[in-house]
Write a protein that binds this DNA or RNA. Structure first.
Ligand SMILES: [Mn+2]
Ligand SMILES: [Mn+2]
Ligand SMILES: [Mn+2]
Ligand SMILES: [Mn+2]
Lengths: 218, 218
DNA sequence: ATTAAAATTTAGGCAAAGCTAAAAATATAT
DNA sequence: ATATATTTTTAGCTTTGCCTAAATTTTAAT
């Protein structure tokens, strides 16, 4: 049985491992989890002992098959709870993360599978992130950043890279949501600002915004 | 902010205090929480320090107003989650307690109030226990034990005193549920066994069963 | 009123998970 | 290649919540 803290470490290593070849560094984990490197070393030893990660002193860590599955199950729970909070309880997408951080640690496979059914097996969470199924399989949809899309091409917003409430609230204010139709009409060479058409209104956004919106081509 | 453990102690003291004048003893708490008396003494000191309970060495403890409200909020969460599990996720009434023991510690007032609304403000949990409202008010319905009812009086089952899964599964087997119409047709003097009519079938139950069913007179 | 039993508290310790400060290993720059 | 900087680990300490064993207080029995 994993502790609350062990689960958070596994989840963090999982997130840091996405699109990453090498092992994850002690400092990277410490930064993400907002703790000290020495605390990370302690926990790393414990997870290694439990064969959830592979660890060689000074070489960083990688998840074992068992650790990977455990991490995916936590992510699955986190994202399913986020869907529940938004779809059933009427939370907005910028309010759900912190509560889901707690709910993801509730230990009941039956609960999470019944919740999954109740929500009708969603494949994405409110931020467009994929929800692993009960076996841990993740259906990857191909998406790219808006900043990588050429001008005058109509794309659909399907996710956010940064899901901080600050960014999400900015998107609300600009009436950008998952499903919005987006077209870059112009990029200003001087400051790299983007003029974009969102559904039916035109606005200007910075490159930073464009680099945090996932879109798919139709 | 209360810890998981502090919350469990407050809840336990609350349950033990129902229909009780004196302070709650260290041993009573230890038994309920399945821990050692010395551990209880430790925690009691901490809760006393935080002014959640009143404590005099060797004299037992009582909840302060603040402690009482905190305890009621935990009970509220526990019971609302039980309703959710049964009504929305399709759990049976004997499966929900352990999961609710975890869910009751999720810290979000917004969550619990939205859940309350989603469930349409239930006043009883799946075991017939009252659910405190957001202010901590508990609507007491008057009920008595089946063992205290006279023969040939038709009553309605409204709750269970013992809500262990063993007892609940026994009730399922006997087709006794909340809302069942019950009439004691006879009590055997020799072994105090009860012949009862449940809705439309007649069965025999022991006095122990009759002493664990709450009923209301119509 | 003593004495025995039961309940409660104290003393001392342990494991988990964190911390700071110092030592050791690795990476980088000259 | 060597010196410096950065990263990582180790050592030792803290808090929380639990434990056992011993001491103390209260209660019950003679
Ligand atoms: Mn989240
Ligand atoms: Mn999310
Ligand atoms: Mn319960
Ligand atoms: Mn209940």
């Amino acid at each position: 049985m994993l502790t609350y803290s062990e689960e958070n470490y596994l989840k963090t290593i999982f997130h840091l491992s996405l699109g990453q070849q090498q092992g994850i560094s002690t400092n990277a984990i410490a930064a993400k989890i907002e703790t000290k490197a020495s605390s990370v070393t302690d926990m790393i030893k414990k997870l290694n002992e439990k064969k959830l990660i592979k660890y060689q002193k000074y070489q960083g860590v990688t998840l074992t098959a068992e650790g990977l599955l455990a991490a995916k199950m936590i992510v699955r729970k986190h994202r399913l709870w986020e869907v529940f909070l938004v779809d059933k309880l009427g939370f907005s997408w910028d309010e759900v993360h912190d509560v889901a951080e707690e709910l993801e640690h509730i230990k009941s496979e039956k609960l999470i599978n019944k919740l999954d059914a109740f929500l009708e097996y969603p494949t994405q969470d409110p931020h467009g992130d994929p929800i692993p199924n009960a076996k841990g399989e993740i259906k990857q949809v191909d998406k790219k950043l808006l900043s990588e899309v050429e001008t005058n091409k109509i794309v659909i917003c399907v996710g956010v890279k940064d899901s901080s409430s600050e960014f999400l609230q900015y998107l609300d204010k600009q009436k950008i949501s998952l499903g919005s139709k987006i077209e870059i009409t112009d990029i200003e060479p001087f400051d790299q600002s983007y003029t974009v058409k969102i559904d039916n209104h035109n606005i200007t956004i910075t490159k930073k915004i464009a680099s945090n919106l996932f879109v798919k081509e139709q």
